[in-house]
């Protein structure tokens, strides 16, 4: 059978809505009987990704593809891009604005947490054009 596909628009102006995609996916994976450790990894990685899209890129689109053996997530934005991906992957490195940090976000753990909770992760980014993050969790 073909994979199940879900698409979510991430609103870049509203902090409080970040997490909608992750909780929706969580609900679906639970109904499908996906093991809870897999659900946990997917939802953490997705939530961090959503927050990143809101903080840095003014929103974007998330595509989730669920196959019997794997879950693929593509997070695409048209934000300012990441100049140095290696640096961005370092724990604690952050370019978030002070106002974002004052809300408790922007601790520089987003990408490292996404990496930690996925089996595969790849980032494509062009400064001024946007960023796409590909993540996979195997079931």
């Amino acid at each position: 059978m073909s994979a199940l596909k879900w698409t979510y628009e991430v609103d870049g102006t509203d902090f409080t809505r970040a997490g909608e995609a992750s909780s929706n996916v969580k609900k679906k994976l639970r109904a499908l009987g996906v093991p809870s450790d897999v659900i946990r990894k997917v939802s953490i990685a997705l939530y961090e990704g959503e927050i990143n899209m809101v903080i840095h890129a003014n929103g974007g689109v998330i595509d989730v593809e669920m196959s019997p053996d794997r879950i693929d997530m593509t997070l695409k934005d048209t934000g300012k891009g990441i100049p140095d991906i290696d640096k961005a992957m370092q724990a604690g490195y952050s370019t978030a604005a002070d106002e974002v940090r004052s809300l408790g976000f922007g601790a520089g753990m987003g990408l490292p947490n996404m990496k930690k909770n996925t089996d595969e992760m790849r980032i494509e980014s062009t400064v001024g054009v946007g960023t796409t993050v590909y993540m996979t969790v195997y079931i």
Binding site: M1, L4, K28, R30, A31, L32, G33, V34, S36, M66, P68, I139
Partner: peptide, 20 residues
Amino acid sequence: EFVPVLKLDDNMFAAMQKME
């Protein structure tokens, strides 16, 4: 123990079909 009462089917293939 977890009681998966919200699951669509015990078999994940079948559950995916049902979700579709």
